[in-house]
């Protein structure tokens, strides 16, 4: 009785419980020894397969991401500066207006200072206009801006500044989520 294929396979895989019996048979049977040798040759063939080289680096996917640039883009910095300027102008218009419209509230010293600046600016404009228009005969320049300004003008100015503010911050947030 010759060895089965299963016996030979299990023997070579070191998974056989009957090693001694199998070895005894192999010593005395050339046919089974030849079958074992053929199987061993196949094992050697499989072992001889060399490793193939990779053509790309799989580790590249796990490289750390480049950190965000420390400085904001130029155009975004400009937007922020314009926003700040817009907000300052809105403040200059609004503070004297509200302090005049709400006389019962005590006017803060800063607002008084702003009113003085506004008054100075208005009188300078007056002087300039008078100088420029002094040659225009018979024309009375009576429409110089005086406070309080029209309510609608103020709200339009505030709305425009708010739109700029929302738009500017929207851009900043969008940049962060990238």
């Amino acid at each position: 009785m010759h060895l089965t294929d299963n016996q030979l396979n299990e023997y070579l895989d070191n998974e056989s419980a009957q090693r001694a019996e199998i070895e005894t048979h192999l010593d005395s049977c050339a046919e089974c020894a030849a079958r074992l040798l053929a199987l061993q040759t196949l094992f050697a063939d499989l072992d001889s397969l060399p490793e193939a080289p990779l053509s790309k680096n799989l580790a590249a996917r796990f490289a750390p991401r480049p950190s965000l640039p420390a400085q904001l883009p130029r155009w975004l910095t400009l937007t922020a500066v314009l926003q700040a300027a817009g907000a300052l102008i809105a403040l200059m218009i609004a503070v004297p207006f509200f302090s005049l419209m709400l006389p019962q509230v005590e006017t803060p010293p800063f607002a008084i200072w702003l009113i003085e600046v506004q008054a100075l600016w208005t009188s300078s404009l007056d002087a300039l206009s008078n100088l420029a228009l002094s040659f225009v005969e018979g024309y009375q320049f009576t429409n110089l801006p005086t406070y309080p300004v029209e309510l609608s003008t103020l709200f339009i100015a505030l709305a425009v500044v708010s739109i700029f503010w929302v738009f500017g911050n929207g851009l900043l947030l969008r940049n962060q989520t990238k």
Binding site: L58, A59, R61, F62, A63
Partner: peptide
Amino acid sequence: VEPYGELVARHQ
């Protein structure tokens, strides 16, 4: 991330 990249490089 970097240590895992090194591990991948070793075993890829």
